[in-house]
Amino acid sequence: MSDKNAIKVEPVALTRKDFVPGNEVRWCPGCGDYSVLAQVQKMFPEMGIKREDFAVISGIGCSSRFPYYMDTYGFHTIHGRATAIASGVKLANPALSVWVVTGDGDGFSIGGNHMIHLLRRNIDINVLLFNNRIYGLTKGQYSPTSLPGAKTKSSPFGSIDNPFIPASVAFGAEASFIARAIDVDVKNMQDVLMESHQHKGTSFVEIYQNCVIFNDGAFADVSNKKTRPDHALFVKHGEPMVFGADQNKGIIIDGSHPKVVDIGKEYPIERILVHDKTNPLITNLLLQMTLDNHFPTPFGVLRQVDKPTYDEGLISQIDAAKEKLGEGGLEELLALGDVWEV
């Protein structure tokens, strides 16, 4: 693939300030979006990409205001279509580092179709899915990730909808990179953002994000620093799945099921399951733990495999055709087919 179609990564002298446009950020005080914005603004300068080579694309919803707060090229589009628009951006100019910011409604309700097709095509785009399990901008209706029984403005008697687990949908859609982060957990978020950038193909990052107004505390058990160690499992490729305030709990496979155990004599660290981000069985096992109260919620990079990307496929087909047939210009175009002279 020619250079003009590859993202250029080189040392750049940029800082967080270079990505702050200086306008007023208008999310509710205490919104989880502030924390994500801060981490993205911190990590972009560390990716070795020039500011003009970033494009941030969003749909509609609270989180979709994101591009206005990033001093890059940005496009605040229409509801649910950010992934499709970003696909066009990337295919038109594969040298751009393209970031989609979307929410659980934008990305998995109205935009669900585009989302799964982006993931299966594996276009080299980074998707940040802000999951707050509620519709915020329309003022508090249940979303496709709201838990059963959720009492919202449009479900006063409790939601009877069965929710999506976004990362599981991504897995079903053949995503090559699936990660999960928490809005207020700075360290893990930074790691995940960097790995997302480094992954070639669609990177799907689900961010648990607190809506202080309509769904406050939805992720309290993993957001609260005190309860987090016992409720969150941060996985690292090649390392055992250990969690707990004293790092004394782990996951083992018991028969064909995962099980939480206390690490010790009976279950020494060697028996604890080791994370392998390339193994679909492991990824699926982690995903199944997500809404199950017997288990901690997994975070970090749950899956990362190398697969051909659509954007490289498209460019290489074009390059191959030019190589074989010669690059066609206007004159060749007009002369195509069976031409006769009068």
């Binding site: 589009t77 499709a84 038109a92 585009h114 498209l314 047939l325 690059e327 066609g328």
Partner: peptide, 22 residues
């Protein structure tokens, strides 16, 4: 293809136009 034409068979009509807008 040898004229550099990029065609994208989208998942639906909406993605057809929105990818083009992108």
């Amino acid at each position: 293809k040898n004229f550099g034409v990029k065609t994208f068979q989208a998942e639906d009509e909406i993605a057809g136009i929105t990818s083009a807008i992108g």
